[in-house]
Design a protein around this nucleic acid. Structure first.
Length: 159
DNA sequence: GCCAACGTTGGC
DNA sequence: GCCAACGTTGGC
């Protein structure tokens, strides 16, 4: 079991949108970076923990807890000429970009990026490194636990 | 809107 | 395969 932080622009798909979706599940489309794609393709497993992060908005931060809810599959938007994610070099036979489904699980307290920067346990997070802009980044168990504690506003039992 | 940082493209 | 030019991300 691994843990991930996945960035979404809330104008496009917010955590509330995911909560309201059928099965509380949304396809994670539009990833157009090879490193992020490879994480989905090679390392993600159904059941992995996901921090649903809101980016490019007034107050960026972790908006909720989610999980990976599918194996990787071709991202439909690469084939759609009317999508801003259309990739003319992608074909059905040889897709370039993939999606996974993400299921929203738990909406806790909103955890702003600015607050994350003040938490010593989170100092090493890939997200917080200078120049880091990957839309999908691995999260360590220690970081995951620290964030869950903050999001739930109370110490976590067990584990 | 600015701009630092990073990724991609394409000529050579 | 180098690397300059260009494009994108995303916090501020």
């Amino acid at each position: 079991m691994r843990y991930w932080l996945m960035k979404s622009e809330p104008d496009e798909v917010s955590f509330d949108d995911a909560l309201a979706a059928p099965g509380q599940t949304v396809p994670w489309f539009g990833v157009r970076n090879y490193q992020a794609r490879n994480f989905m393709r090679d390392a993600m497993q159904p059941g992995d923990g996901v921090l649903f992060y809101h980016s490019s908005c007034f107050d960026p931060g972790v908006a909720g807890i989610a999980e990976v809810a599918s194996l990787p599959y071709p991202d439909e938007t690469q084939f759609d000429q009317h999508s801003k994610y259309h990739d003319p070099k992608a074909t059905r036979e040889q897709p370039r970009w993939i999606s996974v489904d993400v299921r929203a699980l738990e909406k806790g307290r909103y955890l702003p990026l600015a607050e994350m920067r003040t938490i010593p346990e989170l100092e090493g997070m890939v997200l917080l490194q200078k120049g880091s802009r990957l839309s999908i980044t691995p999260v360590t168990l220690a970081e995951w636990n620290a964030i869950l504690k903050l999001v739930r506003g109370a110490p976590q039992m067990g584990a």
